[in-house]
């Protein structure tokens, strides 16, 4: 297995407050990693820094994705390389339908690869297979992006976008929070279906059952902006509380 994502001594701050304090992590091609830790440990910050969210300032360290310097790239360039974030709180965009939004996104990615835009038929084919598989109705595709969607529907739409864009690094930020059992199954199924030898996942979650149903390969515990422990899936069993790690800090 080759290293897909290599994070070395990553430091980042927001509003002059240090959040990541020398974080190290390696995610290999095709692996599924769980990112756990207490609130405020920097889990969501890590995902946003990897995506290039301008709100966060990188103050040190290095991130290589497929051997390329990720931190030098703009947000959309990272997406073209295959980086994807499923948002914990997806943003509402009135005035543009999900179908149109995804068309812009797909074609931007195709153009970056020197390909021609999808024609209408090719696009509909690409979308329909995925919307059907994820239980996304035509009506949901016509509605403005995330407007008036329930929490479960929003997360289903995040999974749908992930399926449409076919990224190679899927970061999934607390998809399980606030979801009932059925909605949670949609998210877990989507991840399981998309698992592939050339696609890695990083999942932020507090939900052991969710992580077990997805079948994680590795578990990282983040405390105060650092990885304090990394283990296999058996670490899930041991993690009843983060208190021990916090005290060790």
């Amino acid at each position: 297995m080759t290293a897909w994502l290599e994070i070395k001594d990553l430091k980042a701050s927001v509003d002059d407050k240090d959040i990541l304090n020398g974080l190290n992590m390696t995610v290999n091609e095709g692996e599924v990693h769980a990112v756990m830790g207490p609130n405020g440990a920097g889990k969501s910050t890590l995902f946003n820094v990897l995506c290039g969210n301008p709100h966060y300032r990188v103050t040190g360290g290095e991130v290589l994705f497929k051997g390329k310097n990720l931190l030098d790239m703009s947000v959309d360039e990272r997406a073209h390389e295959g980086v994807f974030l499923a948002f914990q709180l997806p943003v509402e965009i009135p005035g543009i339908s999900m179908a149109t939004f995804m068309k812009y996104a797909l074609n931007a990615g195709r153009r970056a690869k020197g390909m021609k835009d999808f024609d209408a038929v090719g696009y509909m084919k690409h979308v329909k297979v995925r919307s059907k598989a994820l239980g996304v109705t035509d009506e949901m595709l016509k509605r403005p992006v995330n407007v008036g969607f329930s929490g479960g529907e929003k997360k289903r739409m995040e999974m749908f976008q992930m399926a449409v864009l076919e990224p190679s690094l899927c970061m999934v930020d607390e998809m399980d929070s606030g979801l009932d059992v059925d909605a949670l199954k949609v998210v877990a199924d989507a991840i399981n279906v998309m698992r592939a030898a050339d696609r890695s996942f990083m999942l932020i979650s507090h939900n052991r059952r969710f992580l077990e149903s997805v079948g994680v390969d590795k578990v990282h515990v983040l405390v105060k902006g650092k990885v304090v422990k990394t283990g296999g899936r058996d670490l899930l069993e041991e993690l009843t509380s983060f208190a021990a790690y916090q005290e060790a800090e």
Binding site: C51, V91, Q161
Partner: peptide
């Protein structure tokens, strides 16, 4: 949000203002 989906900054602005 638009940029994380691969839409460049200029195009994303255009899409949002249009919307």
């Amino acid at each position: 949000y638009l940029q994380t989906r691969g839409i460049g900054e200029e195009e994303a602005k255009k899409v949002l203002v249009g919307a």
